[in-house]
Design a protein around this nucleic acid. Structure first.
Lengths: 164, 164
DNA sequence: GTTATTGCAAACATTTTGCACCAGC
DNA sequence: GCTGGTGCAAAATGTTTGCAATAAC
């Protein structure tokens, strides 16, 4: 979850929808609200399971369609631009990620100093003909919880898991 | 593709396998070689299609198993730790990514200065109880090719696509 | 000769699509 | 009454698994 009261964020969301000519439906509101309230970067399935408690008829297909639609409007985004399909975030401000390679948990960190640090990247990207829209730093390692447990095997990259 | 002659890289790969007690099969060699030769971060399907020209009996299941196995040994890694399932890289040295949010193309950049820049991240991660193993900067925007084409709609995040 | 690895086919998981129905302007 | 949005079911896509045959050590 990020700065700004929930009320403000929902208001902003409604404004964004209106501006884009999108209907503000209970489904969209509920999905956005849940995404803006959690910090667990849930998948469509997880969102479906949770939001369903509020809207029992909500279908999984609607969750998928809604996430795509809201991403189009900029209210929501996939956790990573690198094709990390399946995990979503309503924090569309610049922030970075701590990724546990054991359990897959992703923690947001907003650290303005890191932004400054990545600035040389823009010049570099320009040299590649790139127009830079933003950046994110992905820091990987083991979270406190996983450091405790002894690694069995030389486990490296955690792929595919969803975090606890 | 990264530094070191292909011959050296293959030798290193063989050594890695041996050290881990893995058989060096033609399938593993071919998959590694192809991954180490391309810079397109291919998916399992794409690898299968390409390597098949060399090993016509290669099955897709073997490609999946091989990628997992080689990742375990550290010879290969998913493009991102953030669950970017489906795209692989044999460049296991520290490097960063230019991601085109229109076409999805991913370009590697190795820029030591960027590494230094991200150093404050380690301290920050430690404060979260994290043991840092590494980091990668993901710079997103539009590539030269996509900048040409006028954006239709306010297209934001390209999800799921594979790049041309 | 053992044991790990492959290829196949089937299972499974995830995401997308087509279409009829419903709700809001 | 239109239009856009939802829900359902089916299809497409992507990934994993069990197991017999095969090849590496």
């Amino acid at each position: 979850m990020i700065g700004g009261s929930m009320r403000d964020r929902v208001q902003g969301f409604v404004a964004q929808c209106r501006a884009a000519g999108l209907a503000v439906t209970p489904q969209r509101l509920a999905i956005f609200r849940h995404l803006a309230t959690t910090d667990s970067h849930p998948s469509a399935e997880e969102l479906h399971a949770t939001v369903r408690r509020e809207l029992p008829t909500l279908s999984l297909a609607t969750v998928y369609k809604t996430l795509d639609t809201l991403a189009t409007v900029g209210a929501v985004r996939p956790v990573s631009r690198l094709g990390a399909r399946g995990r979503w975030d309503a924090n569309v401000t610049s922030h970075h990620h701590l990724v546990c390679t054991v359990c897959g948990r992703v923690t947001d960190v907003a650290e303005p100093r890191l932004d400054a640090a990545a600035r040389p990247a823009a010049a570099l990207a320009a040299r590649h003909g790139f127009t830079v829209a933003g950046h994110a730093i992905e820091i990987f390692g083991r979270c406190a919880a996983c450091r405790g447990r002894q690694a069995r095997g030389r486990s490296t990259t955690a792929r595919g898991e969803r975090g606890p």
